[in-house]
Computed example of a mutant assay.
Amino acid sequence: MPAASTTLRMLAVSVIASLTVTGCQTLDDAGRAIGRADLVNDMAARLDQALELTYSADYQLAGGQTATIAQAQEPARSAYTWPGGKLTVTPEATTRCETAAGRATCTLEAPPAPNAKPTVTMFAEAKRHGLVTPPIVVGLLTAAALDPDAVIAQSDTTLAGHHATCIEVDRSAGDFTACVTTEGALGSFTGKVDGSQVELALSRYRATVDGTAFDLPPHAGVVDRRPAS
């Protein structure tokens, strides 16, 4: 996200500046801080790049369940599907769906402002069901970069046939490992989010999106809370 990337670049500068002002850190400390900020910026830039792509990604969740992230352009649309729920963001509405007793109920709310980026709070329900989204991962990486005691390591792997860079974070607030593919899709995540252990891994990536990805679940009940035009 342009805004997020700018914030993270400012974060890197502030970390380095704080080392200079205190005067009690060694050059090795400064090097570690610079390296940490560089890793965060690289991961954030890849996740940001994905916002400008058309793609769909399937994920395997803990317990054998699945989730999907789909995104298309012109117009910009996105859909996040997890066990028992779905969030769809289009120029017409932000739609949240929940399924209970085999029936889906969807609530339509006002769409985001033009060119607005997704916020972490938008994905609260998805997070509770094990789908960790890119904005959440960026937030966790930012917190790790600000933690002087965090240990951050980088590695490479292949997920669903796609190269990915992984960041392993060891910190008192919670360890986690996040991987991002070269294309910018979230490749995998393992760790605690809000006190709950979360695991997901990319099982399939496509540079296309099925046109039905942004549709409401079949026979869903609809509650329209959008302001009257």
Rank of each mutant, 00 (worst) to 15 (best):
Q65H: 03
T66R: 15
T66L: 02
T66A: 15
T68I: 14
I69M: 03
Q71V: 00
A72W: 02
Q73M: 05
E74R: 06
E74F: 06
P75Y: 04
P75C: 01
P75Q: 02
A76C: 04
R77E: 04
R77L: 06
R77K: 04
R77W: 01
R77N: 03
S78I: 08
A79M: 05
Y80R: 03
Y80Q: 04
T81E: 14
W82N: 01
P83C: 12
P83K: 02
G84A: 13
G84Q: 09
G84M: 06
G85R: 03
K86Y: 12
L87K: 00
L87T: 04
T88E: 03
T88R: 08
T88H: 03
V89H: 13
T90M: 05
P91Y: 12
P91V: 13
E92D: 15
E92W: 14
T94E: 08
T95Y: 09
T95G: 08
T95F: 14
R96V: 12
R96C: 11
E98L: 03
E98P: 07
E98R: 08
E98F: 12
T99W: 11
T99M: 13
A101F: 15
G102L: 02
G102E: 04
A104G: 00
T105C: 02
C106P: 05
C106K: 00
C106F: 15
T107Q: 10
L108N: 10
E109A: 11
A110G: 06
P111N: 05
P111L: 11
P112G: 10
A113L: 04
P114E: 01
P114K: 09
N115S: 12
A116D: 06
K117T: 12
P118H: 07
P118L: 13
P118I: 10
T119F: 15
V120Q: 06
V120W: 13
T121W: 12
M122I: 00
F123C: 12
